[in-house]
Design a protein around this nucleic acid. Sequence first.
DNA 1: GCACGGAATTAAATTGTTTATTTAAAGTTT
DNA 2: AAACTTTAAATAAACAATTTAATTCCGTGC
Lengths: 166, 166
Amino acid sequence: MSKKKGDKKAKSGKKKELEGLSATDLAPAITQAARSMRTALSRSLGESGLYAGQDGVILILAEEDGMTPGQLAIRLGVKAPTMTRTIGRMEAQGFLERRADGTDGRLTKVHLTEAGLQTVEQIGRSVSECGSIAAKGLSDKEIRTLLKLLKTIEQNLQSEPSDDRG
Amino acid sequence: MSKKKGDKKAKSGKKKELEGLSATDLAPAITQAARSMRTALSRSLGESGLYAGQDGVILILAEEDGMTPGQLAIRLGVKAPTMTRTIGRMEAQGFLERRADGTDGRLTKVHLTEAGLQTVEQIGRSVSECGSIAAKGLSDKEIRTLLKLLKTIEQNLQSEPSDDRG
DNA sequence: GCACGGAATTAAATTGTTTATTTAAAGTTT
DNA sequence: AAACTTTAAATAAACAATTTAATTCCGTGC
Protein backbone atom coordinates (compact mmCIF):
# COMPACT_ATOMS: atom_id res chain seq x y z
CA MET A 1 0.00 0.00 0.00
CA SER A 2 0.99 3.61 0.37
CA LYS A 3 1.99 4.36 -3.16
CA LYS A 4 2.28 7.99 -2.37
CA LYS A 5 5.50 9.21 -3.86
CA GLY A 6 6.26 7.48 -7.11
CA ASP A 7 2.68 7.24 -8.09
CA LYS A 8 1.81 5.68 -11.39
CA LYS A 9 -1.55 6.57 -12.71
CA ALA A 10 -4.30 4.09 -13.27
CA LYS A 11 -2.42 0.91 -12.99
CA SER A 12 -5.54 -1.15 -13.05
CA GLY A 13 -8.66 -1.06 -15.09
CA LYS A 14 -10.91 -1.53 -12.13
CA LYS A 15 -12.52 1.06 -9.99
CA LYS A 16 -9.66 1.08 -7.48
CA GLU A 17 -11.65 2.51 -4.63
CA LEU A 18 -8.70 2.06 -2.38
CA GLU A 19 -7.51 5.63 -2.48
CA GLY A 20 -10.98 7.08 -2.49
CA LEU A 21 -12.30 5.13 0.38
CA SER A 22 -12.32 8.17 2.59
CA ALA A 23 -11.13 10.96 0.39
CA THR A 24 -14.40 10.83 -1.45
CA ASP A 25 -16.09 12.28 1.58
CA LEU A 26 -13.61 15.11 1.89
CA ALA A 27 -15.22 17.61 -0.43
CA PRO A 28 -18.70 17.32 1.06
CA ALA A 29 -17.36 17.40 4.59
CA ILE A 30 -15.33 20.54 4.09
CA THR A 31 -18.10 22.21 2.19
CA GLN A 32 -20.59 21.63 4.95
CA ALA A 33 -18.26 22.62 7.72
CA ALA A 34 -17.43 25.83 5.91
CA ARG A 35 -21.07 26.59 5.34
CA SER A 36 -21.85 26.21 9.00
CA MET A 37 -18.86 28.29 9.93
CA ARG A 38 -19.80 30.99 7.50
CA THR A 39 -23.35 31.12 8.77
CA ALA A 40 -22.24 31.33 12.38
CA LEU A 41 -19.66 33.98 11.59
CA SER A 42 -22.14 35.91 9.54
CA ARG A 43 -24.53 36.03 12.43
CA SER A 44 -21.92 37.13 14.87
CA LEU A 45 -20.57 39.70 12.45
CA GLY A 46 -24.00 41.09 11.72
CA GLU A 47 -23.92 43.02 14.95
CA SER A 48 -21.16 45.18 13.55
CA GLY A 49 -22.93 45.61 10.24
CA LEU A 50 -20.51 43.37 8.39
CA TYR A 51 -20.91 40.33 6.19
CA ALA A 52 -18.79 37.23 6.21
CA GLY A 53 -15.93 37.91 3.87
CA GLN A 54 -15.55 41.50 4.91
CA ASP A 55 -14.06 40.71 8.28
CA GLY A 56 -10.71 39.65 6.92
CA VAL A 57 -10.29 42.88 5.03
CA ILE A 58 -10.64 44.97 8.14
CA LEU A 59 -8.46 42.68 10.21
CA ILE A 60 -5.63 42.80 7.73
CA LEU A 61 -5.96 46.53 7.26
CA ALA A 62 -5.84 46.98 11.01
CA GLU A 63 -2.44 45.37 10.99
CA GLU A 64 -1.17 47.13 7.91
CA ASP A 65 -3.11 50.06 6.59
CA GLY A 66 -2.89 51.19 3.00
CA MET A 67 -2.65 47.85 1.26
CA THR A 68 -3.70 47.52 -2.35
CA PRO A 69 -6.71 45.46 -3.43
CA GLY A 70 -4.41 42.98 -5.09
CA GLN A 71 -2.39 42.46 -1.94
CA LEU A 72 -5.54 42.02 0.08
CA ALA A 73 -6.86 39.49 -2.38
CA ILE A 74 -3.72 37.42 -2.13
CA ARG A 75 -3.66 37.60 1.65
CA LEU A 76 -7.27 36.50 1.85
CA GLY A 77 -7.06 33.89 -0.86
CA VAL A 78 -9.72 35.37 -3.09
CA LYS A 79 -9.54 36.62 -6.65
CA ALA A 80 -8.93 40.26 -7.43
CA PRO A 81 -12.40 41.02 -8.80
CA THR A 82 -13.95 39.72 -5.61
CA MET A 83 -11.80 42.05 -3.60
CA THR A 84 -12.59 45.02 -5.79
CA ARG A 85 -16.29 44.60 -5.30
CA THR A 86 -16.05 43.87 -1.61
CA ILE A 87 -13.93 46.98 -1.14
CA GLY A 88 -16.47 48.97 -3.09
CA ARG A 89 -19.26 47.86 -0.82
CA MET A 90 -17.29 48.42 2.31
CA GLU A 91 -16.38 51.87 1.09
CA ALA A 92 -20.04 52.63 0.51
CA GLN A 93 -20.73 51.34 4.00
CA GLY A 94 -18.14 53.69 5.36
CA PHE A 95 -15.69 51.18 6.78
CA LEU A 96 -12.82 52.09 4.49
CA GLU A 97 -11.81 54.39 1.70
CA ARG A 98 -9.73 54.22 -1.43
CA ARG A 99 -6.89 56.61 -2.15
CA ALA A 100 -4.93 56.85 -5.33
CA ASP A 101 -1.23 56.20 -5.01
CA GLY A 102 0.76 59.30 -5.91
CA THR A 103 3.70 57.41 -7.31
CA ASP A 104 2.06 54.67 -9.34
CA GLY A 105 -1.13 55.57 -11.11
CA ARG A 106 -2.22 51.99 -11.35
CA LEU A 107 -2.33 51.41 -7.66
CA THR A 108 -5.13 51.98 -5.20
CA LYS A 109 -4.45 52.11 -1.53
CA VAL A 110 -7.12 51.01 0.87
CA HIS A 111 -7.38 52.76 4.21
CA LEU A 112 -9.52 52.08 7.24
CA THR A 113 -11.86 54.85 8.29
CA GLU A 114 -12.68 55.73 11.85
CA ALA A 115 -15.81 53.59 11.64
CA GLY A 116 -13.75 50.74 10.29
CA LEU A 117 -11.27 51.02 13.12
CA GLN A 118 -14.05 50.82 15.64
CA THR A 119 -15.14 47.43 14.35
CA VAL A 120 -11.75 45.77 14.70
CA GLU A 121 -12.17 44.58 18.24
CA GLN A 122 -15.66 43.28 17.70
CA ILE A 123 -14.55 41.41 14.62
CA GLY A 124 -11.68 39.83 16.44
CA ARG A 125 -14.08 38.73 19.11
CA SER A 126 -16.53 37.29 16.59
CA VAL A 127 -13.91 35.32 14.73
CA SER A 128 -12.39 34.07 17.91
CA GLU A 129 -15.75 33.17 19.38
CA CYS A 130 -16.82 31.26 16.32
CA GLY A 131 -13.59 29.35 16.34
CA SER A 132 -14.05 28.51 20.00
CA ILE A 133 -17.60 27.35 19.48
CA ALA A 134 -16.52 25.21 16.56
CA ALA A 135 -13.67 23.75 18.54
CA LYS A 136 -15.68 22.90 21.58
CA GLY A 137 -14.73 19.53 22.94
CA LEU A 138 -11.53 19.40 20.97
CA SER A 139 -8.18 19.41 22.64
CA ASP A 140 -5.52 21.92 21.83
CA LYS A 141 -3.62 19.27 20.03
CA GLU A 142 -6.59 18.29 17.95
CA ILE A 143 -7.16 21.87 16.91
CA ARG A 144 -3.59 22.20 15.83
CA THR A 145 -3.85 18.95 13.92
CA LEU A 146 -6.96 20.16 12.18
CA LEU A 147 -5.28 23.42 11.28
CA LYS A 148 -2.31 21.59 9.90
CA LEU A 149 -4.42 19.19 7.87
CA LEU A 150 -6.48 22.04 6.51
CA LYS A 151 -3.41 23.87 5.41
CA THR A 152 -2.07 20.77 3.73
CA ILE A 153 -5.14 20.13 1.66
CA GLU A 154 -5.35 23.76 0.73
CA GLN A 155 -1.81 23.68 -0.56
CA ASN A 156 -2.52 20.47 -2.41
CA LEU A 157 -5.48 22.01 -4.12
CA GLN A 158 -3.74 25.19 -5.06
CA SER A 159 -0.70 23.53 -6.49
CA GLU A 160 -2.95 21.68 -8.91
CA PRO A 161 -4.63 24.44 -10.81
CA SER A 162 -6.07 22.29 -13.51
CA ASP A 163 -6.79 18.69 -14.06
CA ASP A 164 -4.03 17.22 -16.15
CA ARG A 165 -5.71 14.93 -18.54
CA GLY A 166 -4.11 11.72 -19.62
CA MET B 1 -6.34 41.55 22.73
CA SER B 2 -2.70 40.72 22.38
CA LYS B 3 -2.85 37.36 20.73
CA LYS B 4 -0.20 37.89 18.18
CA LYS B 5 1.72 35.23 16.47
CA GLY B 6 4.71 34.13 18.33
CA ASP B 7 2.95 34.62 21.58
CA LYS B 8 4.37 31.79 23.56
CA LYS B 9 1.73 30.98 26.08
CA ALA B 10 1.16 27.54 24.72
CA LYS B 11 1.76 25.65 27.83
CA SER B 12 -0.05 22.43 28.21
CA GLY B 13 -3.64 23.43 28.49
CA LYS B 14 -5.43 23.58 31.76
CA LYS B 15 -7.60 26.62 31.47
CA LYS B 16 -10.45 26.73 29.06
CA GLU B 17 -9.46 30.06 27.63
CA LEU B 18 -6.29 28.58 26.40
CA GLU B 19 -8.24 26.64 23.87
CA GLY B 20 -8.87 29.81 21.97
CA LEU B 21 -5.26 30.43 21.19
CA SER B 22 -5.50 28.40 18.05
CA ALA B 23 -9.22 28.31 17.57
CA THR B 24 -9.01 31.88 16.36
CA ASP B 25 -7.43 30.62 13.19
CA LEU B 26 -10.09 28.02 12.63
CA ALA B 27 -12.62 30.11 10.75
CA PRO B 28 -10.13 31.54 8.26
CA ALA B 29 -8.51 28.16 7.72
CA ILE B 30 -11.74 26.36 6.97
CA THR B 31 -13.00 29.17 4.82
CA GLN B 32 -9.95 29.11 2.65
CA ALA B 33 -9.76 25.37 2.37
CA ALA B 34 -13.38 25.27 1.34
CA ARG B 35 -12.82 27.98 -1.24
CA SER B 36 -10.00 26.05 -2.81
CA MET B 37 -12.02 22.88 -2.75
CA ARG B 38 -14.96 24.58 -4.32
CA THR B 39 -12.85 26.02 -7.10
CA ALA B 40 -11.26 22.67 -7.84
CA LEU B 41 -14.57 20.87 -7.78
CA SER B 42 -16.15 23.51 -9.93
CA ARG B 43 -13.52 23.03 -12.57
CA SER B 44 -13.82 19.30 -12.56
CA LEU B 45 -17.58 19.49 -12.61
CA GLY B 46 -17.61 21.96 -15.45
CA GLU B 47 -16.99 19.18 -17.92
CA SER B 48 -20.44 17.82 -17.18
CA GLY B 49 -22.04 21.23 -17.37
CA LEU B 50 -22.60 21.42 -13.64
CA TYR B 51 -21.68 23.93 -10.97
CA ALA B 52 -20.41 23.25 -7.49
CA GLY B 53 -23.45 22.88 -5.31
CA GLN B 54 -25.44 21.04 -7.93
CA ASP B 55 -23.48 17.84 -7.69
CA GLY B 56 -24.94 16.82 -4.38
CA VAL B 57 -28.47 17.14 -5.65
CA ILE B 58 -27.87 14.70 -8.45
CA LEU B 59 -25.95 12.30 -6.26
CA ILE B 60 -28.73 12.16 -3.69
CA LEU B 61 -31.43 11.88 -6.31
CA ALA B 62 -29.54 9.02 -7.90
CA GLU B 63 -29.86 7.17 -4.65
CA GLU B 64 -33.42 8.12 -3.98
CA ASP B 65 -35.44 9.70 -6.74
CA GLY B 66 -38.45 11.86 -6.11
CA MET B 67 -37.35 13.67 -3.00
CA THR B 68 -38.86 17.02 -2.10
CA PRO B 69 -36.86 20.25 -2.13
CA GLY B 70 -37.11 20.45 1.62
CA GLN B 71 -35.70 16.98 2.09
CA LEU B 72 -32.88 17.72 -0.29
CA ALA B 73 -32.08 20.92 1.54
CA ILE B 74 -31.80 19.10 4.84
CA ARG B 75 -29.67 16.35 3.37
CA LEU B 76 -27.29 18.86 1.83
CA GLY B 77 -27.23 21.21 4.76
CA VAL B 78 -28.51 24.24 2.93
CA LYS B 79 -31.60 26.36 3.43
CA ALA B 80 -34.79 25.79 1.51
CA PRO B 81 -34.55 28.87 -0.72
CA THR B 82 -31.12 27.80 -1.87
CA MET B 83 -32.49 24.47 -2.90
CA THR B 84 -35.43 26.00 -4.69
CA ARG B 85 -33.13 28.13 -6.76
CA THR B 86 -30.66 25.39 -7.50
CA ILE B 87 -33.44 23.05 -8.54
CA GLY B 88 -34.88 25.72 -10.79
CA ARG B 89 -31.61 26.14 -12.58
CA MET B 90 -30.97 22.48 -12.90
CA GLU B 91 -34.44 22.01 -14.27
CA ALA B 92 -33.78 24.70 -16.87
CA GLN B 93 -30.54 22.92 -17.70
CA GLY B 94 -32.43 19.71 -18.18
CA PHE B 95 -30.87 17.63 -15.43
CA LEU B 96 -34.04 17.16 -13.45
CA GLU B 97 -37.71 17.98 -13.39
CA ARG B 98 -40.33 18.90 -10.84
CA ARG B 99 -43.55 17.01 -10.52
CA ALA B 100 -46.46 17.92 -8.33
CA ASP B 101 -47.38 15.36 -5.74
CA GLY B 102 -50.84 14.02 -6.46
CA THR B 103 -51.74 13.48 -2.86
CA ASP B 104 -50.44 16.60 -1.17
CA GLY B 105 -50.68 19.81 -3.14
CA ARG B 106 -47.97 21.48 -1.07
CA LEU B 107 -45.29 19.04 -2.06
CA THR B 108 -43.01 19.05 -5.04
CA LYS B 109 -41.16 15.94 -6.05
CA VAL B 110 -37.85 16.23 -7.83
CA HIS B 111 -36.92 13.61 -10.41
CA LEU B 112 -33.76 13.01 -12.36
CA THR B 113 -34.05 13.20 -16.12
CA GLU B 114 -32.18 10.99 -18.53
CA ALA B 115 -29.57 13.69 -18.93
CA GLY B 116 -29.26 13.94 -15.20
CA LEU B 117 -28.77 10.22 -14.85
CA GLN B 118 -25.98 10.32 -17.36
CA THR B 119 -23.96 12.71 -15.23
CA VAL B 120 -23.99 10.60 -12.09
CA GLU B 121 -20.84 8.65 -12.82
CA GLN B 122 -18.87 11.65 -13.91
CA ILE B 123 -19.90 13.54 -10.80
CA GLY B 124 -18.83 10.70 -8.59
CA ARG B 125 -15.50 10.69 -10.32
CA SER B 126 -15.07 14.44 -9.95
CA VAL B 127 -15.87 14.48 -6.27
CA SER B 128 -13.66 11.52 -5.62
CA GLU B 129 -10.82 12.96 -7.64
CA CYS B 130 -10.96 16.30 -5.88
CA GLY B 131 -10.87 14.56 -2.56
CA SER B 132 -7.88 12.54 -3.62
CA ILE B 133 -6.02 15.58 -4.85
CA ALA B 134 -6.76 17.41 -1.64
CA ALA B 135 -5.65 14.45 0.42
CA LYS B 136 -2.38 13.92 -1.37
CA GLY B 137 0.39 13.17 1.03
CA LEU B 138 -1.98 12.38 3.85
CA SER B 139 -2.24 8.94 5.31
CA ASP B 140 -5.48 7.11 5.51
CA LYS B 141 -5.54 7.67 9.19
CA GLU B 142 -5.00 11.38 8.80
CA ILE B 143 -7.87 11.61 6.37
CA ARG B 144 -10.15 9.87 8.75
CA THR B 145 -9.01 12.15 11.55
CA LEU B 146 -9.72 15.17 9.42
CA LEU B 147 -13.16 13.86 8.54
CA LYS B 148 -13.92 13.23 12.17
CA LEU B 149 -12.72 16.66 13.27
CA LEU B 150 -14.70 18.31 10.51
CA LYS B 151 -17.84 16.52 11.56
CA THR B 152 -17.29 17.53 15.15
CA ILE B 153 -16.96 21.20 14.47
CA GLU B 154 -19.93 21.11 12.16
CA GLN B 155 -22.06 19.60 14.88
CA ASN B 156 -20.73 22.11 17.36
CA LEU B 157 -21.69 24.97 15.09
CA GLN B 158 -25.12 23.69 14.30
CA SER B 159 -26.10 22.92 17.84
CA GLU B 160 -25.20 26.46 18.81
CA PRO B 161 -27.45 29.00 17.15
CA SER B 162 -25.31 31.67 18.76
CA ASP B 163 -28.23 33.72 19.86
CA ASP B 164 -26.70 34.99 23.04
CA ARG B 165 -27.27 38.64 22.83
CA GLY B 166 -26.73 40.51 25.99
C1' DG C 1 -65.99 29.07 7.14
C1' DC C 2 -61.78 30.74 9.00
C1' DA C 3 -57.41 30.53 11.39
C1' DC C 4 -52.97 28.12 11.89
C1' DG C 5 -48.96 25.61 10.24
C1' DG C 6 -45.97 23.62 6.88
C1' DA C 7 -43.87 23.48 2.21
C1' DA C 8 -42.31 25.96 -1.58
C1' DT C 9 -41.26 30.03 -3.57
C1' DT C 10 -40.05 34.96 -4.24
C1' DA C 11 -37.27 39.06 -2.93
C1' DA C 12 -33.19 41.34 -1.55
C1' DA C 13 -28.40 41.38 -0.13
C1' DT C 14 -23.70 39.63 -0.48
C1' DT C 15 -19.70 36.76 -1.58
C1' DG C 16 -17.38 34.09 -5.05
C1' DT C 17 -15.63 32.86 -9.80
C1' DT C 18 -14.39 33.54 -14.81
C1' DT C 19 -13.94 36.48 -18.79
C1' DA C 20 -13.15 40.82 -20.73
C1' DT C 21 -12.07 45.85 -20.54
C1' DT C 22 -9.62 50.01 -19.05
C1' DT C 23 -5.56 52.42 -17.54
C1' DA C 24 -0.89 53.13 -16.51
C1' DA C 25 3.94 51.72 -16.14
C1' DA C 26 7.75 49.38 -18.37
C1' DG C 27 10.24 47.50 -22.24
C1' DT C 28 11.48 47.48 -27.16
C1' DT C 29 12.34 49.16 -31.60
C1' DT C 30 13.53 52.48 -34.79
C1' DA D 1 13.46 60.49 -27.92
C1' DA D 2 8.95 58.91 -29.92
C1' DA D 3 5.85 55.23 -31.03
C1' DC D 4 4.52 50.58 -30.44
C1' DT D 5 4.14 46.39 -27.58
C1' DT D 6 3.82 44.02 -23.40
C1' DT D 7 2.67 43.56 -18.67
C1' DA D 8 0.33 44.56 -14.41
C1' DA D 9 -3.40 46.43 -11.51
C1' DA D 10 -8.03 47.59 -10.92
C1' DT D 11 -12.44 47.27 -12.44
C1' DA D 12 -16.86 45.87 -15.00
C1' DA D 13 -20.10 42.35 -16.43
C1' DA D 14 -22.22 37.85 -16.31
C1' DC D 15 -23.32 33.60 -13.68
C1' DA D 16 -24.01 30.95 -9.44
C1' DA D 17 -24.53 29.99 -4.43
C1' DT D 18 -26.11 31.21 0.06
C1' DT D 19 -28.65 33.46 3.65
C1' DT D 20 -32.69 35.87 5.98
C1' DA D 21 -37.25 37.78 5.64
C1' DA D 22 -41.57 37.91 3.53
C1' DT D 23 -45.18 35.69 0.60
C1' DT D 24 -48.04 32.25 -1.49
C1' DC D 25 -50.37 27.92 -1.46
C1' DC D 26 -52.45 24.07 0.55
C1' DG D 27 -53.98 20.92 4.17
C1' DT D 28 -55.62 20.36 8.77
C1' DG D 29 -58.10 21.81 12.78
C1' DC D 30 -61.29 24.81 15.43
